[in-house]
C-alpha cells in the first residue's frame, strides 16, 4: 500500500478511536445512584457479623476437639462480651437517631 494512503488511514483511525472514547466518557449517565456514605452504625453491623463468625469458628473448632472445655468457655465468654458491646452501641446510635 502507498505509505501516504496508509498514513492517512492511520490518522483517520486515530480520529475515530478518539471520538468513540470521548463519546463514551461524556455520554450522560442514566445511573443517578451517588453511593452511600458509610456510617459508624453500618460499620458496627459489619463488626457484629465478624464477631458472630468468630463464634461459629470457635464452636466448630471446639467440636473438632481442638480446645479443652475451659479454653472454649473462656474464649466464648470473651467473644460474647465483644458482641454485647457492639450491640449496645448499635442500639444507642439507632435510638439517638430515632
Amino acid at each position: 500500500m502507498n505509505p501516504a494512503i496508509f498514513d492517512y488511514i492511520i490518522k483517520m483511525v486515530c480520529c475515530v478511536f478518539a471520538a468513540g472514547i470521548l463519546i463514551y466518557v461524556f455520554y450522560p449517565s442514566r445511573d443517578t445512584d451517588t453511593g452511600v456514605v458509610k456510617t459508624r452504625t453500618a460499620y458496627l453491623y459489619e463488626r457484629k457479623e465478624v464477631v458472630y463468625e468468630n463464634l461459629r469458628d470457635l464452636s466448630f473448632e471446639f467440636k473438632s476437639g481442638k480446645f479443652t472445655q475451659a479454653d472454649y468457655d473462656g474464649m466464648r465468654l470473651g467473644l460474647e462480651a465483644e458482641a454485647a458491646r457492639i450491640l449496645a452501641e448499635i442500639e444507642m446510635l439507632e435510638s439517638a437517631k430515632a
Binding site: 468468630n54 470457635l58 473448632e61 476437639g65 481442638k66 480446645f67 479443652t68 475451659a70 479454653d71 473462656g74 474464649m75 470473651g78
Partner: peptide
C-alpha cells in the same frame, strides 16, 4: 493449632 486470644497448656498438649 493455637486458638485466638489465648491457648492453655491442655489445648497445646492435645493438639
Amino acid at each position: 493449632l493455637l486458638a485466638w486470644r489465648n491457648t492453655s497448656v491442655g489445648s497445646i498438649k492435645r493438639n
